[in-house]
Computed example of a mutant assay.
Amino acid sequence: MSIDRQRAVTMRDIAERAGVSRTAVSFVLNDRRSVSLSDETRDRVLSVAAELGYRRNASAQALAHQRSDWYGLVTEIVTAPFAVEIIKGAQDRALTDGKYLLIASTESDAEAESAAIERFLEQRVEGIIYAATWHRAVTIPDIASEVPTVLVNCFDEEGRYPAVVPDERTGGRRATERLLAAGHRRIGFVNLDPGIPAAVGRRLGYHDALRDAGLDIDESLEISGHATADGGFTAVDALLDLPTPPTAIFCANDRMAMGAYDAIKERGLRIPHDVAVIGFDNQELIAAYLRPSLTTVALPFDEMGARGVDILAAITAGQSTDATRVTVDCPLLERSSV
C-alpha cells in the first residue's frame, strides 16, 4: 500500500499496513496498558507508525483531554533583550516538566493582546504567562481569567493574578551598600522618572542603605536622568557642579550610567579613582563594554520567567499556592567601576 505524503498518516493507514484493527492501533498509540494486546502486536504497530511517519493529532487530543501541554506567553516585543531573557527562563523551566510555550508579540496593543489570548484558548493552553519588558502595573484582558494566568515583571492593580516582579528596593540598597563599603559617604543618585515602580523601589533602597550607615538623606544629591544616556550626562554634570560634589554615583539604569561616564571624563576625572559609578539593569551591551566595565545590579529576567512557570505549573496541577506578588532578588555584578 502506498501512502500519499501530502496528507497526514491516519490510524486507519497503520491498521491496514500492520494487519490489525484500528481500535488496536488506538490502544497502542495511546499507551493503553490496561488493554490486553501481545507485545508482538504492540511492536508491529509502533514499527509501522514510525515507518509511515505518523504524528499524533495534538489538537484532537487536547480537545479530548482538555489539556495540551502548552502554555501561552504574551509580551509586548519578543525581540527586546529583556523579553528574550524572560522567554528563555520560562521555556527552559517549562521543558523540565514536558511543557512548551506558544509565544505572541502584541506591541502593547490591547486588541492584539485579547486576540492572542483568544487564540491561545482555542489551542487549549493550560495557562498563560503575561510578561512585560519593564516593571509596571498592567491591565489584563478579562478572557485571561478563563485559564490560570501569571504575570511576570508586572502586576495588576486589583491583585487578581499572581505576579513575579524584581525586588527593586533590595537592589537599590545593594548598590548603595557597595559604594558605602568602598568608603564613599557622599553618594549621588540619578533616578528614573518619578512614580514608576523601579524608581520608587530603587530610591527607597538607596535611602535604606544611607540611614543604616548613619547618614542623613541629602535631597540635593538626588536628580532624575529620565532613563536616557543624555539625561544621565546632564544629571551627573549638575551633581558635579555642587559645592561639595559626590564621590560616587548610583545610576538607576545602565543607560544613564553611560551618560555619567561621559560627564565625569569630560571634567578630566577618572573612574573609579575620582568618582565611582554603579548602574542598574545589567544591559550587557552597555555594562560589559564601557571602560572601565560597569558594576551594576542585574534584573533577574530569566529567573522571573522560570518562577512564573513554577507558579503556573502549581496552579494547573491543582496545588494550593499563596503566591500573590513574588519578588525575585536582584544580584550585584561586580566589574571595575567601583
Rank of each mutant, 00 (worst) to 15 (best):
99 K>D: 04
100 Y>C: 04
100 Y>S: 07
101 L>Y: 06
101 L>Q: 05
103 I>W: 04
103 I>V: 13
104 A>P: 14
106 T>C: 07
107 E>V: 05
107 E>Q: 12
107 E>P: 02
108 S>R: 06
108 S>H: 00
109 D>G: 02
109 D>S: 06
110 A>K: 02
111 E>K: 12
113 E>Q: 14
114 S>V: 03
116 A>N: 07
117 I>E: 01
119 R>T: 10
119 R>G: 03
119 R>Y: 04
121 L>H: 06
121 L>W: 05
124 R>Y: 11
125 V>N: 09
125 V>K: 09
125 V>Q: 09
126 E>N: 14
126 E>F: 04
129 I>N: 12
129 I>R: 10
129 I>C: 12
131 A>G: 12
131 A>M: 11
132 A>E: 12
132 A>Y: 06
133 T>H: 04
134 W>V: 07
139 T>I: 03
140 I>E: 04
141 P>A: 09
142 D>G: 09
142 D>L: 13
143 I>F: 04
144 A>V: 00
145 S>K: 13
149 T>W: 10
151 L>M: 05
152 V>H: 09
153 N>L: 09
154 C>H: 12
154 C>S: 13
155 F>S: 14
155 F>H: 13
156 D>Y: 08
157 E>W: 12
157 E>I: 15
159 G>W: 09
160 R>W: 02
161 Y>R: 07
161 Y>K: 08
162 P>T: 03
162 P>H: 05
163 A>Y: 12
163 A>H: 12
163 A>S: 15
164 V>C: 10
165 V>N: 11
166 P>L: 07
169 R>K: 11
171 G>F: 01
171 G>Q: 01
173 R>F: 10
175 A>P: 05
175 A>N: 03
177 E>D: 03
177 E>Q: 03
178 R>G: 03
179 L>S: 11
179 L>A: 07
181 A>P: 01
182 A>N: 07
182 A>T: 05
184 H>V: 12
184 H>R: 06
185 R>I: 02
187 I>R: 05
187 I>D: 13
191 N>S: 13
192 L>M: 11
192 L>V: 04
194 P>E: 14
194 P>A: 15
195 G>F: 13
196 I>Q: 07
196 I>W: 06
196 I>M: 08
196 I>D: 03
197 P>I: 08
197 P>Y: 07
198 A>M: 08
199 A>Q: 11
199 A>K: 11
200 V>Y: 08
201 G>P: 02
201 G>I: 10
202 R>Q: 10
206 Y>R: 13
206 Y>L: 11
207 H>K: 10
208 D>C: 08
208 D>E: 13
208 D>M: 08
211 R>A: 14
212 D>S: 04
213 A>S: 12
214 G>M: 06
215 L>I: 15
218 D>T: 01
219 E>Q: 09
220 S>F: 04
220 S>H: 05
221 L>D: 11
222 E>A: 12
226 H>R: 14
226 H>T: 14
228 T>M: 00
230 D>Q: 14
230 D>V: 15
231 G>D: 01
233 F>M: 06
236 V>Y: 00
236 V>A: 00
237 D>H: 01
237 D>F: 00
242 L>N: 02
242 L>Y: 01
